[in-house]
Design a protein around this nucleic acid. Structure first.
Lengths: 343, 343
DNA sequence: TGTTAGCACTCTATTGGTTCGAGTGCTAAG
DNA sequence: CTTAGCACTCGAACCAATAGAGTGCTAACA
């Protein structure tokens, strides 16, 4: 195990490397405030830390950099929280100062601010819209063969799809259908919508509407494609600011992974509570083996949850980001719950 | 002016450079089919073309690369169209084969395919939504103090905003308001909506609804923010594939410009009809001085227009892209008009 | 026994010199 | 007007030498 002095040296080494991105040597460390030993002693300790796998050398006579194990130990045991600066708080709070009412918009803007503040990339995951409850359904005819279906949920989220209807459909039939749908489906979650649609309304529709078949089929199909995702990125380009990423090939792989929100399950530990840190190869994706991801969950009301993540180089400023995410998580939980609680 | 042989040499030089990204020398050119002169003659002609500003050297003893003027001459006078390959057509047509009915979705997917096909970045601009016509308005109460306003347009586009309402609002008053709004505003364009809202409905609302003031104010405000933009990008990351862009700083500037759809007016010649090519510094933005942008407009019905653009390096494959955009433009015009004409 | 000064050693990064090759411009002959 | 020939230029690649930062080890010291 590690002595007090070794812990100190490990911590200072990681801190310094996080700050400078340069391998750190014994002389440099000896000069740091808080360290009293001479460079020779430090050299011995560094050798020991390297022997135990916490540090690495880039080449035989270079300074040390933290290994994966070193970072892991650092975040698990050596991380001292530091308060979020007032300035950051002001900027984060600005999201709530403008009168923005949509959950989605708030989350989106938070992502932007978070990435600006950190110079890393942020990923915010909104609450699972499938748990939202149908508040109202409507169908608006557009042209003889087309109509748009609209679903409003209790959160104020609006889903809409254009679908085709029989050309000579009687408008009153559409109205009847909307009435039946609303009668039966208000209060149902989006998750259950499709099933309930079939179970509860099909028979009724058959009973009251001529030529319900074609209409019902395209309508059902329209609702099937769950298109909109609720992932918001901030500062995807910040990757380009990090000196750690100089290989254009690597950058491309990384941005590719983040491009379409397709790999979210692999990037974020969904469902995990509280704060999670994944360092380097702890990430599921090969493209992210040089990255660290810090994730924290937040809650809206008692049921719904979302995630906030920061993606940066392994050499990211863990201390700052952890504090920041802690703050944002509780702030977002509080404000979104407040916005939501009136339901 | 230029002789026949000079024109030939200029064309072959540009073609070769577009293909190889390497400065092209006299020996190389002499070997090309279609060129009969010796390398010495070609050297003389190259010197002449350089003298007239069509070609440049990267250093004293290098081969030639096209100058801005050279590219300009090339696209204006030397571009011979080549038919769009069957394979590309198949891929482009696939957008219309799936039953996607939303204009926006079609445009979005076209952007994706176009970028895949070209390995450049595509920007598609949808028709100006402000010209769309209101088909239906509705207000759905969410919670005591909140409601969501929904506007459906004739194109099937749905705009929605959450806004606050007086907490003890009478539900029947909201219904009245919706009736008045629909009565007066259906058929109005989104562009005129705000003005007409005030002119035509305010007096009526005052007459029929208690405490219309607060409701009307927040409703109006909600409709004011014209949030959603109708710009779709495809393959933003393709920039990273181009060997011309190796400087990470440049890449960042470029991606920055394209990030938020903020600089669209500067990137695209909006309103221009037909095909436009902007080469290098002909672009308005400094970040794009190493890029070329090829733009083509398309029409939906007789009134609405949009733009399709491809952004690539100056050394882009003008011939291929021009043909491709010509095709896509007419195809998109045709299909979207068809989708739309039933109105 | 733990700490430290001193020193030889290692490895990188930088610099300058050399060579190789592709390409040019010019001249003179065809 | 065209072309062969040749001297010249410049970048890229390679190599050696050097400086500098850092290490590991040994021996002296508290």
């Amino acid at each position: 195990m590690l002595t007090e002095r070794q812990l100190l040296i490990l911590k200072v080494t990681v801190d310094d490397y996080i700050q400078s991105a340069q391998p750190v040597g014994s002389n440099q460390l000896a000069k740091k405030p808080g360290i009293t030993s001479s460079s020779a002693t430090i050299r011995n300790e560094l050798a020991e830390l390297e022997g135990q796998g916490y540090l690495e050398k880039t080449h035989t006579s270079s300074g040390r950099i933290p290994s994966q194990k070193g970072y892991r130990y650092y975040v698990d045991h050596l991380l001292t929280p530091n308060p979020v600066p007032h300035q950051d708080i002001v900027q984060l709070r600005s999201v709530f100062e403008e009168k923005v009412n949509e959950t989605e918009e708030i989350i989106k803007r938070s992502a932007g601010i978070l990435s600006e503040l950190t110079n890393y990339t942020s990923i915010l995951l909104g609450p699972d819209i499938r748990r939202h409850i149908v508040k109202k359904l409507s169908i608006v005819p557009l042209s003889p063969g087309m109509a748009v279906a609209i679903i409003v949920t209790d959160s104020g989220h609006v889903e809409n799809r254009v679908f085709s209807i029989p050309v000579d459909m009687d408008p009153s039939d559409i109205e009847k259908m909307v009435n039946i749908l609303n009668d039966r489906l208000i209060g149902v979650s989006l998750h259950d919508l499709h099933r309930r649609l079939e179970q509860e309304t099909l028979a009724l529709l058959r009973q009251h509407i001529e030529r319900y078949g074609e209409l019902f089929r395209t309508f059902k199909q329209a609702l099937l494609l769950p298109r909109s995702d609720n992932v918001y990125y901030g500062g995807k380009l910040n990757i380009l600011k990090q000196p750690d990423f100089h290989d254009i090939q690597k950058i491309r792989e990384l941005m590719d992974v983040m491009e379409e929100g397709k790999h979210i399950p692999e990037i974020l530990p969904i469902g995990a509570q509280g704060l999670q840190i994944r360092i380097g190869s702890e990430n599921a994706l090969a493209a992210m083996e040089d990255c660290s991801v810090i994730t924290v969950s937040y809650e809206i009301g008692d049921e719904q949850t979302g995630s906030i993540a920061i993606v940066g180089p392994k050499r990211m400023d863990y201390r700052r980001i952890v504090s920041l995410l802690d703050y944002v998580s509780s702030d977002l939980s509080k404000e979104l719950t407040r916005l939501f609680q009136g339901k």
